[in-house]
Design a binder for these strands. Structure first.
Length: 594
RNA sequence: GGGGGCGUAGAACAGCCUGGAGUGUUCGCCGGCCUGUCAAGCCGGAGGUCGCGGGUUCAAAUCCCGUCGCUCCCGCCA
């Protein structure tokens, strides 16, 4: 008898003799009759047995792996379970075989409970048995399948690039891998296949993509791990809109596959300037309103020192209406703290009262014209909370943008809001006056003249894709002229020798007839996270690491033998050796083999 | 590097503010009963280094200091 998927059984199967294999989800033993919910990858079906006839049934415990043969039958009148796809049928047992027993579980295999993440990762193989995690694994697989299908139809070539590459000190910190054959030298794991895919354009591939693992050795966040997966893509003879069009077609296909929803194209486009002015961020969540408003003119000549000083300097005054909020002294203080944490000087808040007045600690410093200007500018209705930041432009909009998210952002991801942010600045000026690239140094400027005349004001041909306030990824039209590439390095203060040493091989390649090209990369983890309604990418990564970079199951990273270090020509510092002496304490779930 | 939250039985929590015997709830586990449940039900039972270390106190899960771990955020992430 061939095995059949437990979750596939339907009334049309009634009367069939079947064999199913899976895990005991639950056992409900009534004495004279026992019900066993058997779960396999397809779902759950109810198995019914008389424990007196089938002695093994009494021994079954949760998560035993079993095989059942029996006959599919209709459930008796009134006992169907409408909550289960298989709820109309059950399997009457002929034989139950225990394939493998299971120890008492460290936690229940069900979605209902929130379990400490350390325990989940320590027993990830059990965590992944939970329906939600299984669904996330399947969604991820379907997403990559849809990506490959869509790009294959458009004539793209999937090419693998190396994961042992050379280290580039700019940008994120590299994950390093020591070389044994060349003692003292190091490979780096790629932060992205950026230069290799550009070489593929020079190689005449024309349309390239890769589902590429990338590595960045920076601190963790809910949406950041050391290693992550990107769809990396590049096209020759392309301009920006070719890229946006292709990426849209991929995203639309993935959403269709995972959500069954048709996303409207083309996606909304915002320039970076507009995005910052209206939402205080380059990844705005446009599922809700509340835009930032420029109130500088309202406060021209203000008698309130903080405002007049800001306007007399380089500053600006921006406001936002965050609507009715549960507002208290403590709440206001917390928001002000948050503003300071974000690098701001402070925060002014006002409450719109029923009588049209504005209640605020600073109201007494403002005249009636100013208060009216705020009220009108922010379209205040009674009960609304108004927030005002007086600061340098970037601080002011970023503070209000962050508070907008803190106070108004939906927790789930039921609605989807895709958009493009375009026309990013080419360079960023650090506090100390040094100029760094804002995307990466291979990004084409929009205008060569602009770049030369006013580098810090120059616009680039870089663009980001944003979904529900999450930055999915970014791309750009690349520089394909070696002379322009040199000019960019010059502006960045990378001298000719350094550029030659680090990127000489690439600058050389650019000299052999490089086609104009453009591309993009987006994070598959983040995309699947949002589409699955999750708020952490750890939920869509099968075996993630904790915030300290540890895998609680395997114990990685671990110490290695001295002989291994000797082969690599590596010695540990005093500090590292001292740490090695120290047995780890307070670890409630020590890996068995540490 | 910095700030916030959390750490109590196998799991999820309450207890902590205002110190007084490891007290309690739900699930799981063990034993028993039970023929239509589906988070089955009923009866009984076992199970604890209150993360770890130190301090204050007659007395600490509770207050103080330190530390470890998990998590969210800032910095960082071209």
């Amino acid at each position: 008898m061939t095995r059949i998927a437990a979750g596939s059984l339907r009334p049309s199967d009634i009367g069939k003799s079947v064999s199913i294999s899976g895990w005991v989800q639950r056992r409900r033993d009534h004495g004279g009759i026992a019900f066993i919910d058997v779960r396999d990858a397809s779902g759950v079906v109810q198995v019914v047995a008389d424990p007196a006839e089938h002695e093994t049934v009494a021994d079954l415990k949760m998560e035993y792996c079993i095989s059942v043969t029996g006959v599919v039958r209709a459930r008796p009148e009134g006992t169907a379970n409408p909550d289960l796809p298989t709820g109309g049928v059950e399997v009457g047992v002929d034989e139950v075989v225990v394939l493998a027993a299971a120890d008492t579980l460290p936690f229940m295999i069900e979605d209902r409970v929130e379990i400490d993440e350390r325990a989940r990762l320590r027993y990830r193989y059990l965590d992944l048995r939970r329906p939600r995690m299984g669904a996330n694994l399947r969604a991820r697989s379907r997403a990559t399948a849809a990506i490959r299908r869509t790009l294959d139809e458009q004539g793209f070539l999937e090419v693998e690039t190396p994961t042992l590459v050379n280290s580039t000190p700019e940008g994120a910190r590299d994950m390093l891998v020591p070389s044994r054959l060349r003692r003292g030298e190091f490979y780096a794991l790629p932060q992205s296949p950026q230069l290799f895919k550009q070489l593929l354009m020079i190689a005449g591939v024309e349309r390239y993509f890769q589902i590429a693992r990338c590595y960045r050795d920076e601190d963790f966040r809910a949406d950041r791990q050391l290693e992550f997966t990107q769809l990396d893509l590049e096209g020759s003879f392309w301009d920006r809109d070719d890229v946006l069009d292709t990426i849209e077609s991929v995203l639309v296909a993935v959403v269709k596959d995972l959500r069954g929803v048709d996303v409207t194209r083309p996606f909304l486009r915002l320039t970076w300037q507009e995005s910052m002015d209206r939402f205080g961020t380059d990844k705005p969540d446009m599922r809700f309103g509340a835009e930032i408003v420029d109130l500088s003119r309202v406060f021209e000549g203000s008698g309130f020192g903080v405002f007049s000083d800001t306007l007399d300097g380089e500053g600006t005054i921006r406001g936002i209406n965050v609507g009715p909020q549960d507002w208290s002294r403590g709440r206001a203080d917390a928001m002000t703290e948050r503003a300071k944490e974000l690098g701001g000087k402070g925060l002014v808040w006002m409450v719109a009262e029923e009588d049209g007045s504005l209640r605020s600690p600073v109201a007494k410093f403002l005249d009636e014209r100013e208060l009216a200007g705020v009220r009108d500018g922010l379209a205040a209705k009674p009960g609304d909370i108004l927030l005002i930041a007086a600061d340098r432009w970037k601080q002011a909009v970023e503070i209000l943008g962050a508070l907008r998210n803190d106070l108004l952002r939906p927790t789930g991801h039921d609605d989807l809001s895709f958009l493009w942010v375009i026309d990013f600045p080419l360079f960023e000026e650090a506090e100390d006056g040094t100029i760094t690239f804002s995307h990466h140094p291979f990004t084409s400027p929009s205008s060569l003249d602009e770049m030369r005349d006013n580098p810090t004001g120059a616009v680039s041909k870089a663009y980001d894709a944003v979904l529900n306030g999450v930055e999915l990824g970014s791309g750009s039209v690349r520089i394909h002229d070696p002379e322009v590439q040199r000019q960019v390095f010059d502006i960045l203060g990378i001298d000719r020798d350094t550029a030659e040493r680090r990127f000489g091989w690439f600058l050389e390649a650019l000299r052999y007839g490089t086609p104009p090209h453009a591309g993009f990369a987006f994070g598959i983890d983040r995309l699947v996270m949002v589409l699955q309604g999750e708020t952490s990418i750890r939920e869509v990564i099968p075996f993630p690491k904790t915030q300290s970079g540890v895998d609680p199951m395997t114990g990685a990273p671990t110490w290695v033998d001295q002989t291994q270090l000797d082969e690599l020509g590596i010695g540990l510092t005093e500090e590292a050796l001292a740490r090695q002496e120290q047995p780890e304490e307070g670890e409630p779930l020590p890996p068995a083999e540490r």
